[in-house]
Nucleic acid binder design. Structure first.
Length: 702
DNA sequence: AAACTAAAGCTTTTT
DNA sequence: GCTTTAGTTT
């Protein structure tokens, strides 16, 4: 495509962003303002008009999906394959660099990448070893993750006088966790970024080389960068300062994951003479939708003022429907979808139902099924998280990196070969003593005396499988998968359904070498799966970011859900909820339907819900409020019957003080169940919250 | 190794 | 409430 054509169909702001050649550029791109268009056209324009080699442009995104879309559009603009270009996620680009350079940091180039569950397994085994309550692993994992996102390594914690305020126990766990990763020659997601930063900070010569290689940088979804990602970007750009950051502070919804919106302000300070371009023309939504969105976000504190506008016209009226309960709400949505579909204007794929928490999806799904509407859940658990798929991948990981003890333990007894928990524990203890990987320890046990023959036999038959697979490590990945099937009998053991998934897995591995296949699999997420064929999309508001649909339903517009009750006490978190709502609303192109319920079942109790406080920020004439009465035939539905035992008749109602023979005094939080089987939830000072059956618990009322 | 039971979860989660 | 997982049983 000629350079002139690349500038056609761009508005003046978009054009000036595309024309910007050297120096720092910050593009504040409102929702639906064509930011991907700007990035891809700028990429193509730099290479055709300014003769910047495409391999010298580094473009970083957050999702594989965004990266792939960018590649595709650049391919169609330039007519050349974008496959080998430096366009990818922060994580995948870092992994690519580390594959070449990581030996400098003392890791092997065959390092493997651990996902959250792999990391979780390590933290749990560390906690077990340190005799710390294992259930704490989730919180610890997220603390470790945020430390790494702030570039604080275990060594940094140890070097700091008061360990940045972290208690000694946690520091020990973090140190040990990182040790274990190193022993396994493994990096977790956060390591990919942190290690790349350390690599360049510690090796200025290497940094210089990469700075020369990458003459231009582009960063997408800039408002979502965390400290380590910002630092990485800064390292690359500090020499030539040809950096273009594109983002929207109004769409920052990942603060809880370490994203720092303030990076947008920091950018202008760190890079002097930054040119700032605002993209405010929206090409997606009708004026009515933008009005709602504008009113919601206008109340946001500390935002950069901007106002989206459109020439698409007023559009359809927006409605807000209140149903009696969440079941009626779901039925209303399903019914409305059916009607829309029957009118023939929209296909199912044009429609999305968004919600705050995954829990909401179940009832929505039920209603969709009742109405015979095809739907699909976007996000959720991905193909690569399935047990059988993870197992086969573990075999592959072990072929590439035998030191990967997490993968080894995962498949040591899958399919069963008499290597149970007891055997693993014995080998692990030995491994700990010898400070070696489990694989090496197994080899050692096979050779040494002092172990029973039966143990040696079990271990050597397993090691033989791994070694015979390892001998074929140069084979194509799909052949390797076949070999795994052959040597382990996994397919026969797995059963039909799982086997079918594994055949799919083998298919997806065709034409990929082992390492790149493993990298892409490790960095894959549920969002990357095929787009909806012809079904309604159901997803969380978070997963909806970056997408658009002609018709959008947002369910659960109630206080407690939107904003979520966990976020209500904290103003910063409340602000993030507001932005989340804004993101949801701005997904809609033509029609927006907000819904809520008067009463909603939450866990065990039925809550009276109030309409979302955010609605108070929208003038009433912006939408149509509909109170949905329950259908006559629906009155007998399960929710209509409020269980009698919820009345305060029970002596063990919430608030009552009780005494337990073992745990002492506690306060009743809740009670439920039939008269002959009443369960109470009691908060004890000694052990925390317990669920007890009144029949057996022997409680004394105080 | 399946099949059961008890207990603990429970906001979102690009990688 | 419902789902997941850890632990126990047979």
């Amino acid at each position: 495509m000629t350079k002139q054509v690349l500038l056609n169909n761009l508005n003046p702001q978009q054009k000036s962003a595309v024309l910007h050649n050297t120096g720092p550029l910050l593009v504040l791109a409102g929702a639906g303002s064509g930011k991907t268009k700007v990035i891809t056209h700028r990429f193509a324009y730099l290479s055709t008009a300014h003769k910047v080699p495409p391999m010298s442009i580094l473009a970083m995104t957050f999702t594989n999906k965004a990266a792939n879309e960018m590649k595709q559009r650049i391919e169609s603009l330039t007519g050349k394959s974008a496959n080998s270009l430096w366009i990818g996620t922060f994580h995948s680009l870092s992994a690519r660099i580390l594959r070449k350079e990581i030996d400098v940091l003392g890791y092997g180039k065959d390092y493997c990448i651990y996902d959250e569950s792999d990391s979780g397994n390590i933290v749990r085994s560390v906690l077990k070893e340190f005799k710390i309550h294992e259930a704490l692993y989730k919180g610890i994992l997220s603390k470790i993750s945020s430390l790494k996102a702030s570039l604080i390594s275990p060594e940094d914690l140890l070097a700091n006088e008061d360990s940045y305020g972290f208690d000694e126990k946690f520091v020990r766990v973090y140190v040990k966790y990182q040790d274990e990763l190193r022993k396994n020659n493994a990096l977790d997601f956060d390591d990919l970024i942190m290690c790349t930063v350390k690599l360049f900070e510690q090796n200025p010569g290497l940094l210089k080389k990469y700075q020369l290689d990458f003459s231009h940088l582009m960063v997408d979804e800039f408002q979502d960068t965390n400290a380590s990602q910002y630092r990485l970007m800064e390292l690359f750009a500090s020499k030539h300062k040809n950096i273009c950051a594109v983002g929207d502070d109004d769409q920052s919804i990942y603060k809880f994951r370490g994203a720092e919106v303030k990076n947008i302000h920091k950018f202008k300070n760190d890079f002097s003479k930054t040119k700032v371009i605002m993209l405010e023309q929206n090409y997606r939504s009708t004026q009515r939708i933008l009005d709602i969105a504008g009113n919601i976000i206008a109340k946001s504190r500390d935002r950069m003022p901007k106002k989206l506008w459109t020439d698409r016209g007023e559009g359809e009226k927006i409605s807000y429907c209140i149903a009696t309960n969440e079941i009626e709400e779901a039925r209303y949505i399903a019914q409305s979808i059916k009607e829309l579909f029957q009118k023939g204007k929209y296909f199912c794929k044009d429609i999305a139902i968004l919600y705050r928490v995954n829990q909401q999806s179940r009832i929505l799904e039920e209603a969709m099924r009742e109405n015979g509407q095809p739907y699909r859940i976007c996000g959720g658990i991905s193909f690569y998280q399935r047990k059988e798929v993870k197992d086969i991948i573990s075999y592959l990981k072990l072929i590439a990196n035998p030191d990967d003890s997490v993968s080894l333990k995962r498949i040591a007894n899958c399919p069963p070969r008499q290597i149970g928990a007891a055997t693993i524990t014995r080998v692990e203890n030995e491994a700990r003593k010898r400070d070696e990987s489990v694989y090496n320890t197994m080899k050692y046990i096979m050779k040494s005396n002092g172990y029973t023959n039966s143990l040696k036999e079990k271990i050597s038959s397993f090691i033989n499988i791994i070694d015979s697979l390892h001998a074929h490590k140069e084979a194509s990945t799909s052949e390797l998968i076949n070999l795994v099937f052959e040597k382990t009998g996994y397919l026969e053991w797995a059963g039909e359904e799982k086997a079918a998934n594994l055949i799919d897995l083998r298919k997806s591995s065709e034409d990929k070498d082992l390492k790149s296949f493993l990298d892409s699999v490790s960095l894959f997420s549920g969002l990357d799966e095929d787009p909806a064929d012809n079904s309604v999309s159901l997803m969380t508001l978070h997963n909806a970011k970056g997408l658009e649909f002609p018709v959008v339903f947002i369910a659960g517009i109630e206080d407690g859900l939107m904003p979520h009750f966990h976020a209500i006490k904290d103003t910063e978190e409340l602000e993030e909820e507001r932005r989340l709502f804004y993101v949801g609303v701005t997904r809609a192109q033509d029609m927006l339907i907000l819904t809520g319920a008067r009463k909603r079942r939450l866990y065990t109790s039925i809550q009276e819900q109030q309409p979302s406080r955010f609605l108070a920020d929208i003038p009433e004439n912006c939408y149509l409020c509909i109170e949905k009465r329950p259908r006559a035939d629906a009155i007998t539905s399960s929710v209509a019957k409020v269980p009698v035992q919820f009345s305060n008749a029970s002596p063990y109602a919430a608030g009552a003080r009780v005494k337990h023979p073992k745990w002492g005094v506690g306060v009743v939080r809740d009670s439920y169940g039939e008269t002959d089987d009443v369960k109470v939830m009691v908060n004890f000072h000694t052990v925390g919250i317990k669920r007890l059956s009144l029949k057996f618990a022997n409680l004394e009322k105080l």
